[in-house]
Design a protein around this nucleic acid. Sequence first.
DNA 1: ATAGGGTTAG
Length: 486
Amino acid sequence: MSFYSECGDLYSAHQLFDEMPHKNVVTWTSMISSYVQHGSFQLALGLFKKMIVSNEMPNHYTLSVVVRACTVVGYVDLGVQIHGLIVCVGLERDEFAGSSFLDFNFKVMGDLDSAFRVFDGLYRIDVFTWNVMISGLAQDGDTSEVLRMLSEMQVVDGLNPNDSTIVGLLKCCYILKEVEQVHGLALKTGFKNDIAVGSSLMDSYGKVGSIDLGQKILGSLELNNNTSCFVWSSIISSHARNGCGKEAITLFRDMCRQGMRPNQHAPSSALKACADVRDLSTGVQVQQSQMIKNGFRSDCFVGSVLISLYADAGKICKAEKLFRRIDDKDIVAWNAMITCCAQVEEGSAATCISFFQELCRTTTLEPNGATLFTLLKSCQSISDLVVGIQIHAMISKLSLGCVTRMGNAVINMYSRFGAVDDAYKAFNDIVSKDEVSWSSVIRNYQQNGFALDALRLCKVMMADGMVLTNFSPSIMCCGLRRTCSY
DNA sequence: ATAGGGTTAG
C-alpha cells in the first residue's frame, strides 16, 4: 500500500486498503495521510469519517493530519468536531494534535484568543509550534506580538529561528527597513539558498517596491525545474505590482521561451500586467498560447483577470463566456464579472443586480465590500434608487459605511438622486472624512439647490482644518454666488 | 506526523 502511495498511485493503494481484512489505526492513518500528501483533502476526510464509523480510534498522528486537511480546505464545522474528538481522547495537550489545531484556529477560525489558550496548554513547545504562532500572528499583522514571540522563543526556550520562522516573519513586513532586518536575521541564522526563504524575500522586496533587491536574491538561488517556477512567478508579480507591466510581460515571455511550463500563478500576474498596460492583444496571446495549452481554461484566478481584461476592451459577452467557464468561482470572480457589467454598460444597474442575485441564490459566498462598492456605483439612473437604498442597508449591516471609500460612494449615490439628507447621514457615518468626503457632501448641497448649507459646511470644514486642494475654489465660489443672490 | 514561497476583483 505504501509502495503505491509513494508512486502516487493512490487508486491502487486504496484498492489494496479496501481488500485488507484486518485494518488497524496504522493502516487507516497511512491511507488518510497519503491522500493529504497528494492534496486530496476531501478524500482524506471522507476516509476519516469511515474510520470513525467503523469504530477505529484515531491517534495523535491521524488527528494532526485530518485537522491539517480541514485547515487547508477551510472546514469550520468538521474542524471543530474533530477538536471535540481530540479533547475526548485526551490529546489536546499533545504537541502534534495541538499544534495543528493551533494552526486551524489562526487560519480558519481567525480566533486568536483560543489560539493562545491552545498554545499555553501544550505539554511541549518546539520550533515547529513557535513557528505556527509566529506565522499566525504575522498574518494577522500583529508585529509587536510577533517580535515578543520571537524573543521569547530565543531567550526563554533557547531555540534558534529556522527557515520557516523567517518566512513567517516576512508576512508582517510592510516597509523596506523591516524586510532588510528579517533578511539580516536570515543571513545570521544561516539561510543560504532555501527556496522558500529566497522566494519569500524576493516577493517581500517586491511588495515594498524594491524590485532590484529582490532580483539580487535571485542570483544567489540554485534553481531547478521544480523550484524555478515559484521564483519566476515571484519576480513577474513583483514587476506587475510595481507598475512595470511591460517588463512583467517580457519576463513571462522569457520564462516560456526557456521551456518552463508555468502553473496558473505566473500567467495570472502576466495577464494582470496586460490589463494594466491595456494590452488586450498580448493578453489574448497569453490566453491562447498558455491557458488553453496548459489547461487553465477553468482556473478562477486566470479567469478573473481575463474578465477584467475583456471588460477594459468593452467585450462583455466574451467576459461572460469566460466567467461561465470558471469551475469554482470565488467572490473575486463574481466581483470581476459585476465590475465588468458596471464598466461596459451604460445604466448597468439591472445587469449588475442580476449577477448579484445569481450570486446570492446559487452560492454560499458572502458578498464583500468590493461587491457592494461596485453595485452602488452602477446605480446611475433614478429607477436605481430603490436598489441603491437596499445596497446601502447591506453596507450598514456589514458595518462598512464608516470606511472612507465606501462612505464616499454612498454619499455620491444619494447625491445623484437629490437625496440630500441621506447623503449627509452617510457623510456623518464616515469615521475619518477625507477630501472626497467633504467635497462630495458640499457639492451634494450645492447641486441640489441648498447653497446656504453648502456654505455652512465649508465653514465647518475649514474649522476642522481640512483644505480642499482640488475642489475648493469652484465649490466655495458656487456657494458664495448663490448665497449672495439671495 | 504539526510550521514556510508565487496568482484574481475594488
